[in-house]
């Protein structure tokens, strides 16, 4: 299972690099989603995959019974997903505003802040 997930992470990163280098802002953002998923999967995988019950303590018990999954990577991934979602929502709105104000999403054409003529 670990090997399979590692291959998946590799494929996600490869895909994201391809998309990010495409020179188009929207594709860049799609690449960013893939990369963020790859990062989250990395945390999840690095935390160790355990086929266990959810880490919940049943009523009256002092601790979890039997094998339980490691809750920490899950908490980290959840936090990272939430933050990633917020940042991505911002980036999407920014891309939309960029399209409205600059009239293009071609990253090579975005030169308002840095005109070709430096002087």
């Amino acid at each position: 299972m670990e090997q399979l997930l590692s291959v998946l992470i590799g494929a996600l990163v490869a895909g994201s690099v391809f998309l990010m280098l495409a020179g188009h802002l929207l594709r860049f953002l799609f690449g960013l989603i893939l990369l963020s998923n790859a990062a989250n999967l990395t945390i999840f995988l690095a935390g160790g995959l355990t086929p266990g019950a959810p880490p919940l303590i049943s009523e009256g018990a002092e601790g979890p019974t039997g094998t339980v999954a490691n809750a920490l990577p899950q908490a980290l991934v959840l936090t990272a997903i939430v933050i990633g979602f917020g940042l991505f929502a911002f980036a999407l709105i920014l891309a939309f505003r960029a399209y409205q104000t600059l009239g293009t999403l071609d990253t090579d054409a975005m030169r308002v802040a840095e005109p070709e003529e430096a002087q």
Partner: peptide, 13 residues
């Protein structure tokens, strides 16, 4: 940020 995050994951592993 995502590179940093992946690094954290690996270091934790």
């Amino acid at each position: 940020t995502l590179l940093f995050l992946s690094g954290i994951g690996l270091l934790y592993g």
